[in-house]
Design a binder for these strands. Structure first.
Length: 1029
RNA sequence: GGGCGAUUAGCUCAGUUGGUUAGAGCGCCACGUUGACAUCGUGGAGGUCACAGAUUCGAGUUCUGUAUCGCCCA
C-alpha cells in the first residue's frame, strides 16, 4: 500500500541514486541516436544558487528530459565559472574582515590558493543544489572554466587571435577600481548621484596681449585632476554652437505641451542673454587658440596650450573646459584629436603619483582639499557651487571608480562582431522571444574593441611574454632567436614587434600551450610573462566548445557541437551570448547553438531583483525543504512566460510555528524578528551577535509554491486511487470504438493535451505547458474521469476495460508531467510498474523501469473526437446545474436528490448509460430522462438553453422556498440585463447592416434563447410564489 | 536622452486573428470529513481591464498620447 502523501524528503534521494546508478543522464558520443545538447550557463562560484538559477536550470532540465524521452542522445553539459573579479573580491573582502590583511600581504600564490578553497566549497554547494533540484546533467563531464581542458581552449584561442592580429595592446582609459586595484568593465560600474561641488578655477594666460583676458576660467567637479591637465579647450565656432542649441530649444518649444512652454521659453531667454554676454570673449579665446597661445597651469607651473575643440560647450559652465586626457573619457578623446600629452597623476592605489608634484602620496580626497586650498591662497579659486554629481561606483568593491590610463590587451571586434551579427540576422541563431534580437544586434554593431586584461590574480594568466625598451636592432636579434625557438616548438610560438616609446620597441611573444619547457625557453631569452589575467567572459565565450574538448578533435565535439539551444537570462545576452557566437564561429567555424531562449527574471513582491545583499534572496534548498523539488520546479515553470520579469512575494518562515511572515523593506534587513503568530524570536541572514545567531534561523521562502505542492499531492493521490484499484489487472488490447463515452473522452483529451504540451515545450512556453497539464490532471482526469471510474471499477463487467484505460491514462500523464515534476512521477511509475508492467491503449506494451527513460507520448490524433468532447461537456453542464441547485438549497452532500432531465432523443441515448455517474458527481438519482420529462411537484429548475436541456431537481424533502426564490430572482435579473443589452445591439441599425451576417444571426438566436429562459424562470417564480402563498 | 517591457479581482498571473455576460490559482464567505486526496470537495462574493483620445457596427485586444513602475544602453 502506498503512503497517503508523497514524502519527497524520504523519496527524492533514493530516486536520484537509482537514476545515477543506471546512468540515466549519461550521454555517449558514440551513440547513433540523433544528438541533443545544451551547455549549462555555468553558475559562478562566488556564492550559492538562488531562485533565478533555480528557474534557469529547471527550464533547461524540462527541455533536456523531454528530448531524452523523445529518443535523442541527450547531453546536458554541467560546470561552473570562476568569475574572476567577483570571486576574488569576495575572498579579498573576507580576508580584510577576518584577518585584516590585503592580497599583497598574502602574495599571489597564497591568495589564489585561498580562492581555490573557496571555489571548492561553493562548487560543492552549487552542485548539491542542482542535483537536489533533479537537474539531469551528465555529471561525469563536469567542467570548470579554470580547469586544464578549458585552459587549453583559452590558450589556443588567444594564440589564434594573436596570430590573426585580432589581439593588440594599447593604452586606454579604463575604469580603475582603486580598492581592488584592477580595471573593471563598463558592465561592472554603476552610477550614483551624490552631493558634490562645482569649483570655478582661473588659469593665468601667459603674456596676454592688450585687450586679452589675464586668466581663463574653467569649472570642474574634480579639481585635483588639474594636476594632469594638458590643455584648456574652447569651442572652434562658438556662434554656430549657440545657434544649434537655440534651434534645438525652439523645436522643442514647438512640440511642447502648454505647461512645458514657459520653462522652455525661459531657457531660450537665458541662452540669448548668455550668448550676448559671452560670445565676444569666446571668439577671442578661440582666436588665441588658433594663435597657439598658452596658459600657465597653477601649482605645477606647467605651460599648456589653449586648444579649439567641440567638446567645449559654449552653453555650459564657463564655456571653457580643462582637458585631462589621462583621467576623463571625454578629455581622452580631445587628447587624441588635439595630440595632447596624457599625464597620469595617479598610482594604482588611488594616491597621487610623482607627476602630481608636491601632492604626491595624497589620497584623492586629501589632494582635492589641498589643491583647492592652495588655489584659494593664490586667489585663483572662484565660486564653489553645490551640485549633484553622477559618481561611477565599482559594483565589485562599492568604491568610486577612477578613469585611469593603463596598458591593456584588446580583442579587435570588427570582423568578429560582424560574424556574430550575421549569424543572428540570417537566423542560424534564433533568439526567443524575438524582441531580444535588437539589443544583441545593436550592441554588436558598435563593434567596440574588447579590453580583456584584468589586473587580477584569479583567472587565466595572459599567455604573453614581453620585453620592452629595445632598439630596433636588439629587437631584430631577439626576433631571429625566437624564430629559431619557434622551429623547435612548431605551432607553439608567435611573436610580434611593436613600438613602445618614441624610439624604442617591445617584443611580444604568445605561447600556445601551457608547456613549461617552451615557457622556460622563452623566459630564458629575457622575456617576462604579463602579470594580468583575462576577463572571465573570455573563457565563458568558449564554453560550448571548450567543454566538449576543443581544440582537440574529440568525438564529443563531433557529436554534440553545435549545441541545440541555450537557455539563459537577459542580462548577459551581450556579455555572454554574443561572445559565444563570435568565438564559436572563429574557433570551430560554426555557431555554438541554434536557438537561444531568454527567460524572465524573478523579482520579489516589491518589484525588486532578488539578492543576498538585500536579504530577499530565496535559496532553492529552502523551498525544497518546505515544498519538495517537484513543487519548486512546477512553481517556477508556471511562472516562465515570455514577459521580461515575474514577481514572487517572499516570506520568512517562522522556524517554531511555520507561519509565513511577509517580507517588507523594513523587516528584511533585521538580524532577528519576533514571530507575530507564536511570539518566538528567530534569526535572519543578518544575525551577527552570538545571541542572535543562537536563535533558530527563519528561512526565506515563497508561498507561491504552495499551489504547486498541492498539485503534487493531488497527482499522488489520484495515482494512489488508481493503484489501489488495479488488483487483478490484466493487460488486454482495446477496441476504442466500443468504449463508453467517458473513455473516448479521456483518450480524446489526452490526444489534445499531448499535442499542446509537445508544441508548448518546443516553443519554450513553459507557463502554458504547466497550466495545460495542471488543468487536465486536476479538472479532467481527477475531477471527472476518476470519479466516473469509481462505479465502473466495482462493476465486474466493466472492471477489466476500465483498469486498462485508467492505467493508460495515468501512464501518459506521468510521462507528460515527468520533465516538470521528475520525482513524484518517477515514484508513481515505480508502483505502477509493479501492478501493470505491461499497459497501453489500444495495444499494451511492456514499459521500462524508469519514466525518465521511457518514450515521450505521441499524440494519438485518431483518438481526438470533437463530437465526443461536445457531448461530454453537455454531461458536465448538467452536473454543474445539479450542484448549483444543491448548493443554493444547502442540501448536505450525504443527501441524494431525485433529478429529471428533459432533453432530445440523441442526448437521451448519450445520458442514459451515464445516469449512474450523477450519483458520484452530484449525489443525484436520475429518475427520468427524455423529451417528455415534466417538472416535479416541488421543483427547482435550470434551463441549459445552449444544449437544449432542462434540469429538474425534486425538492420535496429539501425545499427552502426563500432560498430558491432568491436564486431565481438573481437569475432573472441577470437574464433581463443580457436581454436589454442584446436588444440594444440589434436595434442599432449600423450593427445590423455592417456586422458580418453570422455575428448578427448569432446575436438574434441568442436573444431568442434568452427570452425563452426569461419566460421559463419567471414561470418558475410564479409557481413557487403560488405554492408559498 | 535612446531602446525594451509592464499596468486586468485584495495578491500572483492567463486572455489566441477585435465578436455572447473578461478567466485561473491563492486569499475571502457559506456548506461539507461519502474509502484517492482537508495539501480535499461543492457553491458564492469580488473587476470602469492605469488614464485620455482615435479607428470600428463593436476595443482588455489595434493606433496615438499621458502617467506610474521595471530593465538595458548612453
Amino acid at each position: 500500500m502506498i503512503p497517503i502523501r508523497f514524502e519527497h524528503a524520504d523519496a527524492a534521494a533514493g530516486i536520484l541514486q537509482q537514476w545515477e546508478a543506471a546512468k540515466c543522464s549519461h550521454a555517449e558520443a558514440s551513440s547513433d541516436k540523433p544528438p541533443f545538447s545544451i551547455v549549462i550557463p555555468p553558475p559562478n562560484v562566488t556564492g550559492a544558487l538562488h531562485l533565478g538559477h533555480g528557474l534557469n536550470n529547471t527550464l533547461q532540465d524540462i527541455v533536456v528530459r523531454r528530448k531524452r524521452m523523445q529518443g535523442f542522445e541527450t547531453l546536458w553539459m554541467p560546470g561552473t565559472d570562476h568569475a574572476g573579479i567577483a570571486t576574488q573580491a569576495v575572498v579579498e573582502r573576507r580576508l580584510k574582515e577576518n584577518e585584516n590583511q590585503t592580497r599583497h600581504d598574502l602574495g599571489r600564490e597564497a591568495l589564489v590558493e585561498r580562492i581555490w578553497q573557496w571555489k571548492d566549497q561553493y562548487e560543492q554547494r552549487i552542485l548539491g543544489q542542482l542535483k537536489r533540484m533533479g537537474c539531469s546533467c551528465d555529471w561525469s563531464r563536469l567542467r570548470f572554466t579554470l580547469d586544464p581542458i578549458c585552459a587549453a581552449a583559452v590558450r589556443a584561442t588567444f594564440f589564434d587571435l594573436f596570430g590573426k592580429q585580432f589581439i593588440y595592446r594599447g593604452k586606454r582609459l579604463v575604469n580603475w577600481d582603486t580598492f581592488l586595484q584592477t580595471a573593471v568593465s563598463d558592465d561592472e560600474v554603476f552610477n550614483e548621484t551624490k552631493k558634490g561641488h562645482f569649483y570655478h578655477l582661473s588659469y593665468p594666460v601667459i603674456d596676454p596681449k592688450a585687450g586679452e583676458p589675464k586668466t581663463i576660467e574653467i569649472a570642474t567637479t574634480r579639481p585635483e585632476t588639474m594636476l594632469g591637465d594638458t590643455a584648456v579647450a574652447v569651442h572652434p565656432d562658438p556662434a554656430s554652437a549657440f545657434d544649434r542649441v537655440a534651434e534645438g530649444l525652439k523645436e522643442k518649444l514647438a512640440e511642447a505641451s502648454g505647461k512645458e512652454k514657459p520653462l522652455i521659453e525661459k531657457q531660450i531667454a537665458a541662452l540669448e542673454k548668455r550668448r550676448a554676454a559671452m560670445l565676444p570673449s569666446l571668439i577671442q579665446l578661440r582666436d588665441m587658440a588658433a594663435d597657439g597661445r598658452h596658459i600657465r597651469l597653477p601649482l605645477l607651473d606647467r605651460e599648456i596650450p589653449i586648444v579649439a575643440d567641440e567638446w567645449a560647450k559654449p552653453e555650459m559652465g564657463t564655456g571653457c573646459v580643462k582637458i585631462t586626457p589621462a583621467h576623463d573619457p571625454n578629455d581622452y578623446e580631445v587628447g587624441l584629436r588635439c595630440e595632447l600629452p596624457m599625464i597620469n597623476v595617479l598610482n594604482p592605489d588611488g594616491t597621487i603619483n610623482a607627476d602630481g608634484g608636491k601632492y604626491e602620496g595624497l589620497t584623492i580626497p586629501a589632494a582635492r582639499k589641498a589643491v583647492v586650498a592652495d588655489l584659494d591662497e593664490l586667489g585663483l579659486l572662484g565660486e564653489v557651487e553645490d551640485r549633484e554629481i553622477e559618481l561611477p561606483i565599482s559594483d565589485r568593491s562599492k568604491t568610486p571608480i577612477e578613469p585611469y590610463l593603463a596598458d591593456q590587451w584588446f580583442v579587435a571586434m570588427d570582423t568578429l562582431a560582424q560574424s556574430a551579427m550575421d549569424a543572428v540576422t540570417d537566423e542560424r541563431v534564433q533568439i526567443y522571444p524575438e524582441r531580444y534580437r535588437k539589443g544583441y544586434l545593436d550592441w554588436l554593431s558598435e563593434k567596440r574593441d574588447w579590453p580583456v586584461s584584468r589586473q587580477l590574480w584569479w583567472g587565466h594568466r595572459i599567455p604573453i611574454w614581453s620585453t620592452g625598451g629595445l632598439s630596433q636592432s636588439d629587437a631584430n636579434e631577439l626576433s631571429s632567436k625566437l624564430e629559431k625557438l619557434a622551429e623547435q616548438h612548431p605551432d607553439q610560438i608567435s611573436h610580434r614587434i611593436d613600438p613602445d616609446g618614441e624610439e624604442t620597441v617591445a617584443v611580444f611573444v604568445c605561447v600556445r600551450d601551457e608547456d613549461a619547457t617552451v615557457e622556460a625557453d622563452v623566459e630564458a631569452l629575457g622575456l617576462v610573462q604579463d602579470p594580468d589575467v583575462l576577463d572571465t567572459w573570455f573563457s565563458s565565450a568558449l564554453w560550448p566548445h571548450s567543454t566538449l574538448g576543443w581544440p582537440a578533435e574529440t568525438a564529443e565535439l563531433a557529436k554534440f557541437y553545435p549545441t541545440s539551444t541555450l537557455i539563459t537570462s537577459r542580462d548577459i545576452i551581450t556579455l555572454w551570448v554574443a561572445r559565444m557566437v563570435l568565438m564559436g564561429l572563429n574557433n570551430v567555424g560554426e555557431v555554438p547553438f541554434n536557438e537561444v531562449f531568454i527567460h524572465p527574471k524573478i523579482l520579489d513582491g516589491l518589484g525588486e531583483t532578488m539578492s543576498k545583499s538585500k536579504g530577499n534572496g530565496v535559496d532553492p534548498n529552502d523551498v525544497i525543504d518546505k515544498f519538495g523539488p517537484d513543487a519548486l520546479r512546477f512553481g517556477l515553470a508556471r511562472l516562465a512566460g515570455d514577459t521580461q520579469d515575474v514577481r514572487m512575494p517572499v516570506q520568512y518562515e517562522c522556524p517554531a510555528c511555520e507561519k509565513l511572515i511577509d517580507q517588507t523593506k523594513k523587516n528584511r534587513s533585521l538580524p532577528k524578528l519576533d514571530c507575530p503568530a507564536c511570539g518566538k524570536p528567530f534569526s535572519t541572514q543578518w544575525a551577527e551577535t552570538a545571541e542572535d545567531q543562537a536563535l533558530p534561523k527563519g528561512a526565506v521562502v515563497s508561498e507561491r509554491f504552495e499551489t504547486a505542492r498541492n498539485f503534487v499531492n493531488k497527482l499522488w493521490n489520484a495515482s494512489r486511487f488508481v493503484l489501489m484499484n488495479l488488483e487483478g489487472f490484466t493487460p488486454q488490447p482495446i477496441d476504442v470504438a466500443t468504449l463508453p463515452i467517458e473513455d473516448k473522452w479521456l483518450l480524446s483529451r489526452l490526444a489534445s493535451v499531448t499535442q499542446q504540451v509537445s508544441e508548448g515545450i518546443d516553443r519554450y512556453q513553459y507557463s502554458e505547458v504547466a497550466r495545460i497539464l495542471y488543468d487536465f490532471a486536476w479538472d479532467e482526469f481527477c475531477s471527472f474521469y476518476v470519479e466516473i471510474a469509481k462505479p465502473r471499477l466495482s462493476d465486474p463487467e466493466q472492471k477489466q476495460v476500465t483498469q486498462n484505460v485508467i492505467a493508460h491514462g495515468l501512464d501518459q500523464l506521468l510521462r507528460l508531467l515527468h520533465p516538470i515534476m521528475p520525482f513524484v512521477t518517477e515514484s508513481v511509475w515505480g508502483y505502477l510498474g509493479e501492478l501493470a508492467p505491461s499497459r497501453g491503449v489500444p495495444e499494451p506494451v511492456e514499459v521500462g523501469r524508469f519514466v525518465m527513460t521511457s518514450s515521450w507520448p505521441v499524440a494519438q490524433t485518431e483518438h481526438h473526437d470533437v463530437q465526443i468532447e461536445r457531448q461530454f461537456s453537455e454531461f458536465q453542464k448538467i452536473v454543474a446545474a445539479i450542484r448549483q441547485i444543491r448548493a443554493s438549497q444547502n442540501i448536505k452532500p450525504s443527501d441524494t436528490v431525485p433529478v429529471a432531465i428533459r432533453c432530445d432523443e440523441s442526448s437521451r441515448e448519450l445520458l442514459e448509460p451515464m445516469a449512474a455517474y450523477f450519483k458520484g458527481l452530484a449525489s443525484a438519482d436520475i429518475v427520468a430522462i427524455g423529451s417528455d420529462v415534466k417538472p416535479f411537484e416541488t421543483d427547482a429548475h435550470i434551463g441549459l438553453a445552449d444544449v437544449n436541456v432542462d434540469v429538474h431537481v425534486d425538492l420535496e424533502k429539501f425545499i427552502d422556498v426563500e432560498a430558491e426564490l432568491a436564486r431565481l430572482e438573481k437569475s432573472v435579473g441577470q437574464i433581463a440585463g443580457q436581454i436589454t443589452a442584446k436588444e440594444n445591439k440589434l436595434n442599432n441599425e449600423s450593427f445590423v447592416s455592417r456586422a458580418p451576417k453570422e455575428i448578427v444571426d448569432k446575436e438574434r438566436e441568442s436573444l431568442v434563447m434568452l427570452r425563452e429562459q426569461y419566460t421559463s424562470v419567471t414561470n418558475d417564480i410564479t409557481r413557487l410564489q403560488a405554492k408559498k402563498g
